[in-house]
Design a protein around this nucleic acid. Structure first.
Lengths: 337, 337
DNA sequence: TAAGATTATGTGAACGCTAACATTGTATTA
DNA sequence: TAATACAATGTTAGCGTTCACATAATCTTA
C-alpha cells in the first residue's frame, strides 16, 4: 500500500554503479570486454535496486520479442500439459518465452483471433498444434513472415512439422496382435477429419495385408461413448473376430465396457489394443495394451525446429516421433473358436 | 523467400491515410472525436498495409504490458486445459493476454525462475495455481508491487484467492452415502501437503459427526496405484465397512480395481464416491459417483479477481466454487451384513 | 456575425533499451 | 619512448508508441 514508485531503469543502475548506461547494458547482455570489477559493481547495483530489464524496451529496439507463440487448436484431446511443459522448457533454455493461445478449431474466426493476438505480442515464431485438417490452411494463409512449425499435421513440403509416427505405431500394435496368432482383427478408426486417424488406419492395413489378412474397418471417433456403442452392437461371431485395434484408448475403454456388459471376456475371447496410453490405461479392466506416444519429446522436437528456424540454422523436412508398444493384459492369444 | 521488409508502423499508415500519426493512434485506441470519414480512411490504410500495432512500443510508453502471468506449480494433476482456456478467454475479453510458466513445485529455484521470467515480460498481474503448500510463500516473498491471486490455496487474509469448495464437496459426497443408509464410511485421504486434501477430510468428518457416525481415515495420496494398494489390504469385514469416500477419482479407480480382483462387488457390497469427475469416470467399472468441480469457472473467477485488482475495482475476500455431486453406479444402499 | 465552446487534428517529447560509433585507458611491440 | 593494438568505457540516436499540449476546424448561441 505504501510506495508504488516507478521501477528502476538502466540509468538508475548506471548511476548507482557509477558507469554509463551502456556499460550496464553490456553487463546485462554478457558483452565481452568488461572489466570484472566493473561487472561486479553493476551486478551489485542491479541487485540492490531489484532491477529487472524492461522487455518491451528491449523488444522495441531489437525488433525481437523473444517470444514463441503456441497455437492450440484443440484443447480436449491434445496439447496435454506434459507437452506444453516440454516446449516451455525447451524455449526457456534458448532464452525464449512461450506463450499460448487456445482456439476453437471449428471456428475460423476464433483461429484468426488467436493468431492475431499472438502476432500482436510480436512472436518470432509459431508452433501450431492442430490435429484437425481445417485449421492448417487458415494459419498458413494468415501467418507469413515468421516461421511456423506444425505439430501433428501431415507432412507438408513447404512448412516444417513434427508429428507422431502414427503409421508406425498402428503397424506395431496390429503386428502385436498378428504375432499372437489373431487372424480376424478389426480396426475401429478415428475421425478422418483428424490427421492422426488416417495413418493409424493405414498402419493397420499395411500390417494386415503384409500378413495376408483382410483388413476390416469400423468408423469411429475419439469418444468413449462411441467405443461403447460400437461394442454393444458389434457382431463378433459371424466373422469370428478375435481382436480389435482401436484408434485410441478412449474407444478401447468404451469397447471393453460394452463387452463386459455383454459377458465377452477380454482378453479371453477378444484382445484389444488401444493408442495413447492415457494415465488410466494400466487400471482399465483389464489393463490396456496400447501405444505410448512420447508427447514431451514431440513438443521438444517442434520447439527445436522453430528455434532452429529463428536462429537461421536451416532444418529441413519433417520430424517424427515413434510411439512405443506397451503390452498389458488386454491382449492374449486368440481363443479356439 | 522474397521480401522480408520491415513491418509497417504507425507513420506508414498515417502517410497513406494522409493524417498525422497521432490520429492513427487515436483510431487504434478508439478515441472519441474522430471524424467517421477519417477513421475509415485510417482503417483502410491499416488494412492495406496489414498493419499490426507494436506491442512492445505500446507497453514501453504506457508502462502496461497487457499481460497476465499464470504460474502453474504443478502440471500433472492440476491446471487442466479447460481451466487454462477459461482463464485465457476471460483475459482476452478484457484486452489482456495470458502467459503461463509451469514450474516444479518442489524446487524453489524453479519457482523463482518461473516468476522471474514472467516478471521480465512485464506482467501486470499474476495468477498462481499452487495446490501444494510450499510454493505460496516463495511467490509471496518474491512478487511484490503487482497483484497476485492464488488458486487453490487456503484463504490468506492478505492476498486474494479463488478456490474450490473442497469442504462442501466432501460434505456433499459423504452425506450422499449417509443418506443411502451407510454407517461405516471410510475416507481415503489425499496427501496433506496439498491444500485440497485437508478440507476434503474435514468435510467428510463434519458430515460424519453431524450424523452421529464415527469417521475413519486412511492416509493416501492422489495416485491410482495407492488406491489399488489400499484396496488390496483393506479389511472391510471386521468393522463392517460398506462405503468409501475417496479423496479423488484416481484413488477410487485403484480401489475398485483391487475390489474387483478380490471379488468384492461395487456397489453391492461396497459403495464408493470419488472426487474430480475425470473424463473417464462415467466408464469406470462401475461408473463412478463423484464430485465435479467446475474448473473453468474457477479459472474465470481467478482471472476476474486479477483483472479487478488491476483496473482498481477492489474486490475483497476469497472466492469459492462449489463442486457438484454426480451420482452414478458406484453408490447404492448398503448390503445387509 | 463575432465570441465562445466544442470537435477534430497536429506537434514534440518521452518511455527504456541497444546499435553504432567515438573516445579513453592499458598493454604490446618496435 | 613512441607507435600501435586492443580492451574498456562513453555518447548519441532511434526503435514505435502514447501523452500532454497546441492548434485548426466546426458548431453554438447571442
Amino acid at each position: 500500500m505504501a510506495d508504488h514508485q516507478k521501477p528502476p531503469n538502466i540509468y538508475d543502475v548506471a548511476h548507482l554503479a557509477d558507469v554509463s548506461h551502456q556499460t550496464v547494458s553490456r553487463v546485462i547482455n554478457d558483452s565481452p570486454n568488461i572489466k570484472p570489477s566493473t561487472r561486479e559493481r553493476v551486478l551489485a547495483a542491479m541487485k540492490e535496486l531489484e532491477y529487472i530489464p524492461n522487455a518491451a524496451a528491449r523488444a522495441l529496439v531489437t525488433a525481437r520479442s523473444k517470444i514463441i507463440g503456441i497455437l492450440i487448436t484443440d484443447i480436449v484431446y491434445h496439447g496435454p500439459a506434459g507437452m506444453m511443459h516440454a516446449m516451455e522448457v525447451e524455449a526457456l533454455n534458448a532464452g525464449y518465452m512461450a506463450i499460448s493461445a487456445s482456439v476453437d478449431p471449428q471456428s475460423l474466426e476464433s483461429i484468426n483471433r488467436g493468431v492475431e493476438n499472438l502476432r500482436r505480442m510480436g512472436i518470432e515464431g509459431l508452433v501450431v498444434i492442430t490435429p484437425q485438417s481445417n485449421s492448417v490452411s487458415v494459419v498458413e494463409s494468415t501467418v507469413t513472415n515468421i516461421p511456423v512449425v506444425y505439430i501433428d499435421s501431415p507432412n507438408q513440403p513447404k512448412s516444417l512439422s513434427a508429428s507422431l509416427d502414427n503409421f508406425e505405431g498402428a503397424r506395431l500394435g496390429t503386428s502385436h496382435l498378428i504375432e499372437l496368432g489373431h487372424k480376424n482383427i478389426i480396426h475401429v478408426a478415428g475421425p478422418m477429419a483428424w490427421f492422426d486417424a488416417l495413418p493409424r488406419l493405414e498402419g493397420y492395413q499395411k500390417a494386415m495385408l503384409a500378413a495376408g489378412l483382410k483388413p476390416r474397418v469400423i468408423d469411429g471417433d475419439w469418444n468413449i461413448e462411441t467405443g461403447y456403442l460400437i461394442g454393444r452392437n458389434l457382431d463378433i461371431d459371424t466373422d469370428k473376430v478375435t481382436a480389435i485395434f482401436a484408434a485410441n484408448d478412449n474407444l478401447s475403454l468404451g469397447l471393453m465396457h460394452a463387452f463386459r456388459e455383454r459377458g465377452i471376456d477380454v482378453p479371453g475371447r477378444l484382445s484389444i489394443v488401444g493408442f495413447d496410453d492415457v494415465a488410466e490405461a494400466p487400471y482399465f479392466e483389464p489393463p490396456l495394451t496400447t501405444l505410448r506416444p512420447d508427447l514431451a519429446k514431440l513438443g521438444r522436437v517442434a520447439m527445436g525446429l522453430i528455434l532452429g528456424q529463428i536462429t537461421g540454422e536451416s532444418v529441413e523436412g519433417s520430424h517424427t516421433v515413434r510411439p512405443e508398444l506397451i503390452v498389458r493384459k488386454s491382449t492374449a492369444k486368440p481363443p479356439i473358436i
